[in-house]
Amino acid sequence: MSNSSAKESRLPVLGINSLGRIGKLTLWHHVNRKYFKEIIVNQGRDIGMGMETIARLIEADATYGLLHRFLYGIKAQPCIQITDEKNGKMLIDGIPVTVLREQRNPMNIPWRQYGADIVVDCSGSFKDPTVPVDDKKGSIRGHLNGGAKAVIHSAPFKIKNKALSTPEDTTTLIYGINHTAFNPKKHLLISAASCTTTGLAHMVKPLLDNKETSTILTASMSTIHAVTNTQSVLDKLPKAGEKDIRKTRSILNNIILTSTGAAKALAEVIPEVKNIGFMGDSI
């Protein structure tokens, strides 16, 4: 066996749950980096007309353009090849990618069968790490039951039952802030926090680490957020009992002030923030 073949055989397999925007860009990133010898993507349902539709959705992004140009520049050629329509297999820039289209509940996704060591959950559906594995609506812990050794959640964790605390095997890590606190023997569920918390953390930590600026009494932040799929494209009537009718206005034509949990989440990665009167809002 050649050195390159031996190295490739030792590379792990990555699992990605949900091929939404974050899931797709996670796939792009790891096709580019080639840290994994194979990538398993679970969507849990059929998409369009099959693998041809999936390939086209993976290939193009409204912000970043075309995958092959993202990888190699404007003169590059398309790099997705469908190899097995029935079993959802394709090659993306030489990396084997399998798209699963049957199970949506994490505990039923066959990660073990495909050898997926790490799963990145990009669905946004399983935010509460205290939900038991066998919950009928699904739980992020289900990925562990399905064979994953660790799960990275692409959004902040949110515990609905305020009487419960964060489980010991659960943590929130931001690279460059507290990533050295990661304990692979202990931490099985890892949140990568949110885009706002990540951006805020990298501004606040240098201030706290510097003697001249380490004493912060109060602080406020505003995040000017991009459009998301949860917002209204056009004005619509609010649901019964809706308290904040501003959220029903067209996001493309209005500046809509809302709340953000970024300041609270910041304290999970920088504990000193708990002593600061921190206010945050989102637009």
Score class of each variant (00 low, 15 high):
180 T>I: 11
178 N>Q: 02
55 A>E: 03
86 K>Q: 13
155 A>C: 10
111 W>I: 02
60 A>M: 11
54 I>P: 03
133 V>D: 04
51 M>S: 09
133 V>C: 14
64 Y>H: 15
150 A>M: 14
112 R>Q: 13
130 T>W: 07
97 V>F: 07
27 L>Q: 09
101 R>V: 00
50 G>A: 12
50 G>K: 12
143 H>N: 04
66 L>A: 09
225 H>A: 15
281 D>Y: 14
90 M>Q: 05
258 T>V: 06
147 G>D: 00
181 A>S: 15
238 P>Q: 12
69 R>Y: 02
162 K>L: 14
198 T>P: 05
21 R>S: 14
231 Q>G: 06
96 P>V: 07
228 T>P: 05
225 H>T: 10
176 G>C: 01
222 S>W: 08
280 G>E: 02
258 T>P: 06
93 D>N: 12
245 I>N: 11
76 A>H: 09
245 I>C: 10
95 I>P: 07
222 S>C: 12
245 I>T: 15
64 Y>Q: 11
115 G>M: 11
66 L>V: 12
242 E>F: 13
142 G>M: 03
120 V>P: 08
179 H>C: 04
5 S>P: 04
164 L>T: 09
44 G>K: 04
209 D>H: 04
141 R>I: 00
61 D>Q: 14
74 I>S: 13
240 A>V: 15
246 R>L: 14
126 F>A: 08
135 D>V: 02
171 T>Q: 06
5 S>F: 13
127 K>Y: 10
202 H>I: 03
29 H>L: 04
75 K>L: 12
178 N>G: 02
102 E>G: 07
262 A>W: 00
7 K>F: 03
25 L>T: 13
23 G>F: 02
181 A>C: 10
196 T>R: 07
225 H>S: 14
130 T>D: 05
205 K>R: 14
10 R>C: 04
209 D>C: 05
86 K>N: 07
260 T>H: 01
202 H>F: 03
151 V>A: 06
260 T>L: 01
41 V>S: 03
274 K>Y: 02
252 L>M: 14
148 A>W: 05
159 I>D: 13
256 I>D: 00
194 S>W: 07
43 Q>H: 14
255 I>E: 12
46 D>E: 15
4 S>C: 09
269 V>A: 01
105 N>D: 03
178 N>M: 02
57 L>A: 09
170 T>N: 10
103 Q>P: 00
143 H>F: 01
26 T>E: 11
28 W>Y: 09
238 P>R: 13
197 T>E: 14
242 E>C: 15
141 R>S: 02
252 L>C: 12
85 E>L: 08
76 A>G: 08
118 I>K: 11
232 S>H: 14
236 K>G: 09
143 H>S: 02
99 V>Y: 03
108 N>F: 15
85 E>A: 13
31 V>W: 11
179 H>E: 05
118 I>G: 07
9 S>T: 06
67 L>D: 02
248 T>K: 13
54 I>K: 09
184 P>N: 07
151 V>M: 08
90 M>T: 03
112 R>A: 13
44 G>V: 01
103 Q>Y: 00
157 F>E: 03
76 A>P: 11
116 A>H: 05
